[in-house]
Design a binder for these strands. Sequence first.
DNA 1: TGAAATTTGTACGTATGTATA
DNA 2: ATATACATACGTACAAATTTC
Lengths: 135, 135
Amino acid sequence: MSLDPHSGVPLHRQLAAALRARIAAGEWPAGGLLPPSARIGYDYGVGKATVQAAVTALRAEGVIDVERGVGIRVREPAERELVSVPRGAEIEARMPTPEERAELGIPEGVPVQVVTTGGRVRGVYPADRVKLRPR
Amino acid sequence: MSLDPHSGVPLHRQLAAALRARIAAGEWPAGGLLPPSARIGYDYGVGKATVQAAVTALRAEGVIDVERGVGIRVREPAERELVSVPRGAEIEARMPTPEERAELGIPEGVPVQVVTTGGRVRGVYPADRVKLRPR
DNA sequence: TGAAATTTGTACGTATGTATA
DNA sequence: ATATACATACGTACAAATTTC
């Protein structure tokens, strides 16, 4: 349950793993709030920066959302729309640029899928809201 | 060139944007090293934690790699292998779990593409090394 | 309306550890 | 062995957003 400072694994990674496991186990429901970060730090006996690092990592994984003044929320899976992709197209995935994140309203930790045909970009899709299907 | 503490935009975001732009402009070649983080902090007049936050963000975007004891390296685009995807399959993208990152050797800031048919997972591909093509 | 409490964000500094050159 | 460079981790202070009273 607790963390081991002598395990060789950094505390912030241990903490991220612990929280990830508790979230996966359903300890907090999707859309629900984790305890305040100060409480988490107290419970696990680590400082603020360590909690911050763990939270940053889980955000980058798309596991949580953090709302300032509110708390740390378990991300809810979004509805996924089916998008057909023609034969011969190519599908790549990558992290969005900040501009794309702003324009498309993409949360942190969510990649984009890019569909191209003949080198021309046909679509850029937030990966949490689409499933691509070859037609 | 420099940062504005009064712009309302956090310094670490401004710094990340500045470095992103300089990288995109080719100021440092792919595979090359940025200046040491201490130098970056000195040049931009910000503290160590601020540089760290900017570096963490650029890592999560897949723009840079950080090698301990070496420096901050501009990531080189990997060779992309073409993978055919059958009709009727579904393609999703997401950030990998830490286990997947370890098993597949996926760098930070790189999503995975997941191909399923009939709900069964047919493949999990590091997105920096594949392009999927509907066949 | 507004004040207070809660909670996260930003940013600094300091010290120590560890990998590489 | 020494120097360089990033990583970890602590603490502190203040700012900003939200909720509650």
